[in-house]
Design a protein around this nucleic acid. Structure first.
Lengths: 199, 199
DNA sequence: CATGTTCTTGACGTCGTGTCAAATACTTCA
DNA sequence: TGAAGTATTTGACACGACGTCAAGAACATG
């Protein structure tokens, strides 16, 4: 056994950074290889394909992202929690250091990756899994809020609604990039779901 | 002057159909050329690039789509109009004849097209323009409904909210493909915006 | 120190985009 | 009717990216 000359996780981080900054399509394995100081062939040997590499990098990110969301949803009044949730989501659209006019957002990266063919099905499932887990997180938060009398309504439906708005915001961000407006929409959504009390 | 041997609009239609079925990335100009019975070079001569061709095909589609939306938003009670609007939007996600497990939807095609680099900026603007026009349409409908007492609230904010949900549905459709659930979310959104009266 | 397994390396094949010059076909003007 | 001019078509070319493969290199194990 000959040991790897590079760190698996380092490459994953570097790859994700590139995918995020330049988009999946706009990032070649040569770019990643150069940045990571690794031969291109080694990447194929270690990960199999560009898409498999993306998937691993994405799943790694998804884990971190979920933890952050969980934290944001864990303190304060229900309204505060939801506000923090939207804040984190919107901030995340442009976190990092995007280049000139970069329209690529983490919030929709997986769509760019799946566009065309290839790992479509697998990327779809990974993405769907992330969405589901986020929805569950929000739903739990709403249910807990309901028990404290901060919300009355269908927690499942409301959570689904919130997640839908969240994904819609990602699309709008890509089209307009207007962050203040996104926050207005988010606030409005919270008002609608919570019934405007306290707003 | 030598006249073109193919019809500009025919090619646009054929190209859009391919883009829709296989995604922008998954469609090569060779595919379109073969389907249209045109030489690949002629496409470059006539349209400039794959992305320019996509943009023209997309703008053509956008015009048709807007007309259909306008029609859907034009009859019945406000609730009926919004329901028709969401129906058309959701149906449009999968209209046509997608191949096996096709995850590409018209609702997000432009994102796949813009992924990476190239015409990013231009595609973004075209997409943003379409979103804006749809938002205006919805807002007008809400304002008209408000005058008839069917809605009271901020028509602008509500329209933005609805459009956001719409784009979010497109993302969810891509992730889950579960149409019944999309319709539930749509109905819930209408309830939230209209205040659940009559539902 | 020999052996074997895995990783690395560089060359190759394929496909897709985009460019270019030469050939072609049509219009227009004489 | 015929010649000139112009835009289109055509096929070859260059380039970059993904993916494969065989040969060489480096390490663990006996």
């Amino acid at each position: 056994m000959r040991p790897r000359e590079f760190d698996h996780d380092d490459v994953l981080r570097i790859a994700f950074d590139q995918f995020w900054r330049k988009g999946v399509r706009g990032t070649s394995l040569s770019d990643i290889a150069r940045d990571a100081g690794v031969q291109r062939g080694s990447l194929y040997n270690a990960f199999g394909s560009k898409e498999a590499l993306f998937l691993q990098a994405y799943e790694r990110y998804a884990g971190d992202y979920l933890l952050a969301l969980q934290k944001a949803l864990g303190t304060g009044s229900l309204r505060k929690r939801l506000t923090a949730f939207f804040d984190l989501t919107i901030t995340n659209f442009r976190s990092g250091t995007p280049p000139r006019g970069c329209p690529t957002t983490r919030g929709l990266m997986e769509l760019g990756a799946a566009e065309g063919e290839g790992l479509d099905e697998e990327a779809r499932q990974v993405f769907a899994g992330l969405i589901s887990r986020i929805t569950a997180l929000v739903q739990d938060t709403l249910s807990a809020g309901a028990e404290r009398g901060e919300f009355n309504g269908n927690a499942g439906a409301a959570a689904l609604h919130i997640i839908t708005v969240t994904r819609g915001l990602a699309v709008l961000e890509r089209a307009f990039g207007d962050e203040p407006q996104l926050r207005k929409i988010a606030a409005h959504t919270i008002d609608l779901v919570l019934g405007r009390k306290g707003g």
